[in-house]
Amino acid sequence: MSDPDAVRILLVDDQALIRVGFRMMLDAEPGFAVVGEAADGAQAVADVDRLRPDVVLMDVRMPGMDGIAATAEIVRRSPSCRVLVLTTFDLDEYAFGAIRAGAAGFLLKDAERVELISAIRAVHAGEATLTPRVTRRMLELMTEMQESPARPDLDALTEREQDVLAAIARGLTNSEIASELFLSESTVKTHVGRVLTKLPARDRVHAVLIAHGLATPEAGGGDR
């Protein structure tokens, strides 16, 4: 009998063997349900409309509509659906393209099983996840752009909210931020929500990109 509370997952990859491998892995994980497979971006968009998955595992390089374009369309049409981009290509253009398109995370296909499972659970819970190399590169770009005139004015954030934003940029979870700043986790969640509202940003990764001039704010604010 299917679990009504299971995380509904759509697999998107142009290679059938890749999809089979991911399906076998995820079907064996309690609390997960693979509800469909797509071989290209256009099919993925249609399947999201039809199947209403919670999380999409999205390949980048596919015939026709690629994963970046599909991610942007899915986020536009189904804001509650979270997209986790998986690729064998460890290149900045794909990672940042995916994030700008609205992806909740970016991982390489050679990530360990536990890392993939953790990433799916994180994005489903509303968090964002990036492979460590991408996080390091993002921080490098942020450092290079510290004096950029395109960097937005952060005066709207309180000192504590700026502390929280800086911790988010380092990849810390809410519990880790709470421990470092000597706050309760519920207080951290409140601060994160205020940061997203004030910038405004759709999620934590988007907030960091906005703060450092790598992305533009959401029109009218993002989803909380």
Rank of each mutant, 00 (worst) to 15 (best):
G67A: 01
A72Q: 15
A122F: 08
M58A: 05
P79L: 14
T88K: 07
A128F: 08
A111P: 12
H124L: 14
A128I: 05
D59G: 02
I120F: 09
F89D: 15
P53W: 10
R133K: 15
V83A: 02
H124W: 13
D90N: 06
L116T: 13
E73Y: 02
A98L: 12
G67H: 09
V60K: 07
V123G: 05
G41A: 05
V48L: 12
D92K: 07
G126Y: 11
D49L: 14
T129D: 02
A69P: 00
S118K: 10
P63W: 09
E127L: 14
D40G: 10
L51P: 04
E112T: 01
A122M: 03
A39E: 12
A95G: 08
D54P: 13
M62Y: 01
A42R: 15
L130N: 12
M62K: 05
T71W: 07
A101M: 02
A39N: 12
I120D: 12
R61C: 13
A125T: 06
F96S: 01
R77E: 15
R82V: 13
I68T: 14
R113K: 00
L107Y: 10
A44I: 06
R76N: 15
L130I: 15
R100N: 11
L130M: 13
R133S: 07
D47V: 06
V134H: 06
T71L: 10
R82Q: 13
P79E: 09
D59K: 04
A101F: 03
A103Q: 05
A72E: 15
L91I: 05
T131E: 15
A95C: 12
A72R: 15
M62I: 09
A119P: 15
L86H: 07
Y94R: 00
F96Q: 10
F89K: 09
E112S: 07
D40W: 09
V123I: 05
P79K: 04
I117C: 02
T71G: 01
E127S: 08
Q43F: 01
Y94C: 00
P53K: 05
T131K: 05
L84K: 03
D49E: 11
L107H: 03
P79G: 08
D66V: 00
L130D: 13
R121L: 07
R61Y: 00
T71A: 15
K109R: 11
V75G: 03
L107K: 14
V114R: 08
L108F: 13
S78D: 04
E112A: 09
I120K: 04
R61S: 03
L116I: 15
A44K: 12
A103R: 11
A72P: 06
T129F: 12
D40T: 14
R61L: 10
T87P: 01
S78E: 08
R133N: 10
F96H: 03
A119R: 14
V83G: 03
T71R: 03
G41T: 00
R61V: 05
L108W: 15
E93I: 07
F106C: 06
R50D: 06
R61M: 01
R82A: 15
R82I: 08
V45K: 04
R76D: 14
Q43Y: 11
V55D: 04
L84A: 13
A70Q: 04
D47N: 09
I99S: 13
D40M: 07
I74D: 04
R77G: 07
A104R: 03
M62S: 05
L130C: 04
V45R: 11
I74E: 00
